[in-house]
Nucleic acid binder design. Sequence first.
DNA 1: GTATAAAGTTAGATTAATAAAACAAAATTA
DNA 2: TAATTTTGTTTTATTAATCTAACTTTATAC
Lengths: 236, 236
Amino acid sequence: MTLQKTFNGSASISTFATMNSLIEENYLKSLFNLSGKSGEVNVNELSKQLEIKMPTVTSMMKKLAKKKLVHYESYKPLRLTEKGKKQAVDIIRKHRLTEMFLVQKMGIGWEDVHHIAEQVEHIQSPVFFEKMDELLGYPKLDPHGSPIPDKNGKMEWKHYNKLSECKAGETIKLAAAINTSVEFLKFLNSRELRLGLKLKIKSIEPFDNTMIVTYDKRLAETLSHTVCERLLVEKL
Amino acid sequence: MTLQKTFNGSASISTFATMNSLIEENYLKSLFNLSGKSGEVNVNELSKQLEIKMPTVTSMMKKLAKKKLVHYESYKPLRLTEKGKKQAVDIIRKHRLTEMFLVQKMGIGWEDVHHIAEQVEHIQSPVFFEKMDELLGYPKLDPHGSPIPDKNGKMEWKHYNKLSECKAGETIKLAAAINTSVEFLKFLNSRELRLGLKLKIKSIEPFDNTMIVTYDKRLAETLSHTVCERLLVEKL
DNA sequence: GTATAAAGTTAGATTAATAAAACAAAATTA
DNA sequence: TAATTTTGTTTTATTAATCTAACTTTATAC
């Protein structure tokens, strides 16, 4: 138990030994998001992701290494420790739960929730997020189809295919959107493309890989390769 | 329009010229809360409220003065400018709306919401708070009986009496709790004392001003002077 | 109306997060 | 494999928010 200040300056007792700064949390989150199968992340990648210069990243990695949150050795790739991974996953859990809550319980558009969740994810209050989880009925996926880790940090990534890798004639179901920028999500809205939607691939332009698809009452919608690269689907 | 970083480091366009730091926001909020009728606040008071030493406060006041958020003159009391007051009221609006949302829509106890609202109040997203307001049906009061400013910053303070100033024999309705610490609210919970509750003052101990009151099925509940000082009531 | 106390300011130091410049190691390419 | 580019680190500097110590102004008390 440590004594710490709340934001309004009144003293309060906290059971959290680790009051991570918002800044540290963002480093952890990016590290997690950049770790592929190997779990390795380069300083350069992280620097670009966070838009923070490499020397700053290096020094922060040393700091996080002291806290046993990352494995750091000069000139070697970065890796989160188990402790670091746990904290990162918790932030991602809070982010995705929030997105789901904003869409499902507050009626905010899926294109607007990321920006809000980026802020809410740093709130320190287990009760708050447990209540969200409960009210949502313990959802497994967020509004963009990404898995929500459970309280123990477990999350199931189903194996999806990129729409761009499907063939003409196939019928598929939209499962998730990758790299969910406001513009992309607004584009999907404008074509009434939503998760769970079934669509059929009528043809593929060999020249530029543009797809012609049908769904609902839309008989020939054109989707660029860029769009198809960003959509994950389930084959039916 | 200014270009700024979001918390995850991705660039985004913001329409807010003024991205106040959380720290500045806390100074503004405390300044507002400490301004009585005169609107004047001493550096010393502010320093104590925020648990920040006076020299730090002085230098922050100079900074806020440059931003036209406070009127500052050496050795004179501090006053918020209209601009500063507006920003402070907006933070208070966000705080109280959040408390109401947490209680009404998320089922979190009124003793737990302050701590969460202290964090949520700093979130930058008009949409988020407008949705809260709408879902709550544009409430005028928060769960502790404090008025919620509307979008234009207007708030109505009804005139309430302190319970401690009432006389034996009077029947009153609990209207608001002042200085809402977790301990105090838990105490109220333990006695089933809640806002809106009608109670009758049976007698007052002249020695220590303790009150004996009745309400619901409780026929003789004792309330210390300290408690009665912290409860605002409406006379019936 | 001095003397003392309280409140407020100034000056100097510290810490965290950042960047620029210079340097070192590793990877790529010719 | 030597030259070049890319990546990563070290050193030095800056900014924001904080503090302590020393000093000044205003308020209070005798």
